[in-house]
Design a protein around this nucleic acid. Structure first.
Lengths: 214, 214
DNA sequence: AGTATTTTCGAGTATGCACTCGAAAATGCC
DNA sequence: GGCATTTTCGAGTGCATACTCGAAAATACT
């Protein structure tokens, strides 16, 4: 057995996720939520730039302007902080996602919007691939997230199929997985060479291939 | 400025890449090449399982059955070892790639073949995303590799287009980037849930959408 | 003002990391 | 056997890491 990493779990007696503090409301408490938010924000940036393993408490603490130990008061372990960042990211993208339009408009629009916030994409792409490594704390998060997105897209495609608007011979499940994969794969290329890759245009091309010319 | 990482470059006086030792051929020399190969092999496995940052000289040395310092005799820096691994990977996949068939057969066949060697895919997916982080030693490798693959595919698509075998309205450059992205993105999902994703089938679906039904 | 509570941090622990140094052991040519 | 060279490693360096401990400072409710 090779060395391996320690990363003790630490049980985390309460307030594991982040919301609904128990009951106690004494002392300087109002500032707490704000602090947590700014920490999560800084952690988001650091994990996006460096990845989970290479990102450190120290750097996050530096950015937020407090000591490393002060930070540990809010997030006692690194993986807890990571999960808080990921869930925060969900909130952000859900908030910024009315998606009232059809499948094409919605996806292409979101892809265009993503171009202006590269940090979010970077976090997603880097952590997503990193999470396939052994014992990564974000693994189950990404497994669940991918499954959810795939079923959502598959349902939308089946609905369009019922209207006869999908080109014949398309399998909705496979097309949903392909759509997700295409998006993520293009984003990685875009991160490496933003000039060369037009994520939204490629996605539109693909979706137009899927749908009936009508 | 936050802490940051050291990672001194170290100049590497000679034999930077790996091949063509200078002239000296004395002492126990024949074993050297074999050793290097087994080290690169072990490093390949470790980087695939853990990524570059989380993978360590110590674990690689353990697997190859030698001391960490002994390993450093062959690869004086970690990034040199990484690049050796990546170039070795190129050799492997080029060797196993006759690709005499057409675009579809070739790509789908290679995707199927990849299913039996998950380590190779894992290495590729993990390092590729990791390389988008700041100052990653594999960044330029992946930039170059993506560009090369895209131009290859784009050329093949243009050739098919000249034969009238491509569905009208397809942009070869964007389709090439999409093909690469689709493949990579699907592989990440496959790494997370091998049962749920059929990479080769999805690729075939996409390629059949690109080409004229004929 | 007093006090319970929260927030913050300085100092420390144990560990892992890439990498250095210097020398012993192994090896092959003469 | 002698010798130049290569291969190997033990010991060490300096640094970064996640995380602990205990106490001081800040805060707000009474």
């Amino acid at each position: 057995m090779p060395t391996g990493r320690k990363q003790t779990p630490r049980q985390s007696t309460e307030r594991t996720t982040s919301e609904h503090r128990p009951v106690a409301r004494r002392g300087a408490g109002a500032r707490s939520a704000e602090r947590r938010r700014s920490i999560v924000e800084a952690a988001h940036a650091v994990f996006a730039e460096r990845g989970y393993h290479a990102g450190s408490f120290q750097e996050i603490a530096d950015r937020v302007g407090m000591s490393q130990t002060g930070l540990l008061h809010y997030f006692p372990t690194k993986s807890e902080l990571l999960l808080a960042v990921l869930h925060r990211r969900d909130e952000i993208t859900v908030d910024a996602a009315p998606e009232p339009e059809g499948l094409i408009q919605g996806i292409v629009g979101r892809a265009r919007a993503n171009e202006s916030l590269p940090g979010v994409i970077e976090l997603y792409s880097v952590l997503c691939a990193e999470s396939t490594t052994e014992g990564h704390p974000a693994r189950s998060y990404f497994v669940g997230r991918f499954a959810a997105i795939r079923t959502t897209y598959a349902a939308e495609l089946r609905a369009l199929q019922a209207e006869g608007r999908v080109r014949p011979g398309i399998d909705p499940e496979r097309a949903a997985a392909s759509l997700v994969g295409l998006w993520d794969g293009l984003q990685v290329q875009w991160l490496l060479e933003p000039e060369q890759i037009d994520v939204a245009a490629c996605l539109r091309d693909y979706l137009e291939l899927l749908l009936e010319p009508s």
